[in-house]
């Protein structure tokens, strides 16, 4: 009881927060619908599945799905509720999104792997996009993200917040940690990327089948890059906008966790 009361208090706090998501403002929806038809005529997104890992995202998941379904059919949105204590799964289900529920919390990596495995069960799944459930990513960027895969020029597209578009509201400490992460990833995996912990990515069916995510927690981000290199999958980076809010910063990783993640990742590599 005490727990649910607490979550209600938190939720009301977040609702008052200013946001940079255009879709949450009703006036912008029609503009986006026009954008959608323009996108549809150019790109066929019917084979694009979006996997959204979500843990206690009841206050954000509705707007994330609302945002996503301007771009992809709702039956292609897979929300993986990673053992949330709140109504994340119910809300996602009420929007018609495919909702997979982990009985207990297993971490974002595990949730992503579940969503990808389920998407691959659909023969129509040609592209699988991973998209954070905390509202940091912009759904209208999906068409441009998946375009190189649909055009057959690459197998993996990695979103980057450090090339072109600026991440709004990002803290300097976070930039520093992410940059150190880039150097670490380059040394360990040998992959040259400008952003190593961006949850906005797109995989071709072939890439999704080859990439094995065994790290349940946040180390999966480094593991994915490692797998891209190991399987010699062609990849490219695409600038995406990450919208930081007090909410996403609170939900996201702390910079202090970076060292722990690096150790965990190195250990997992030693054991492989």
């Amino acid at each position: 009881m005490a727990l649910s009361q607490r979550s209600i208090t938190i939720r009301s706090d977040w609702q008052n927060e200013p946001t940079c998501r255009p879709v949450e403002q009703p006036g912008n929806i029609s503009t986006l619908s026009v954008g959608r038809s323009a996108v549809d005529s150019e790109l066929d997104l019917s084979g694009t599945f979006v996997v959204v890992p979500a843990y206690n995202e009841a206050h954000m998941i509705a707007s994330v799905i609302e945002d996503l379904r301007q771009v992809v059919p709702v039956t292609r949105i897979i929300v993986v509720d990673d053992g949330s204590d709140d109504a994340t799964a119910n809300i996602a289900g009420s929007f018609g999104a495919i909702t997979i529920r982990h009985a207990i919390n297993r971490g974002q990596g595990a949730a992503l792997a579940t969503g990808i495995e389920y998407a691959l069960n659909h023969k129509s799944a040609a592209v699988i996009v991973t998209f954070d459930g905390d509202g940091q990513h912009q759904a209208q960027e999906i068409p441009e993200l998946v375009r190189p895969i649909l055009e057959g020029t690459t197998e993996v597209v990695l979103g980057t917040r450090f090339s072109g578009k600026r991440a709004s509201g990002i803290r300097k400490s976070r930039i520093l940690t992410l940059k150190l992460g880039v150097i670490f990833t380059r040394m360990v995996s040998g992959i040259r990327v400008s952003d190593c912990h961006n949850g906005f990515r797109a995989f071709s069916r072939k890439a999704a089948q080859q990439i094995r995510i065994s790290q349940d927690g946040m180390t999966h981000a480094s593991e994915i890059l490692d797998e891209v290199m190991r399987n010699r999958l062609p990849y490219l980076e695409h600038p995406v906008q990450i919208c930081y809010t007090d909410y996403s910063r609170c939900k996201g990783q702390r910079s202090g966790q970076a060292f722990e993640l690096a150790i965990k990742f190195l250990m997992s590599r030693l054991l492989r």
Partner: peptide, 20 residues
């Protein structure tokens, strides 16, 4: 580590079976 991965696989299989 083995147990953790086995548990995750179990949770995954159950979750996917439920949604199917």
């Amino acid at each position: 580590e083995e147990l953790r991965q086995e548990l995750t696989r179990l949770i995954r299989a159950l979750a996917i079976r439920e949604v199917e």
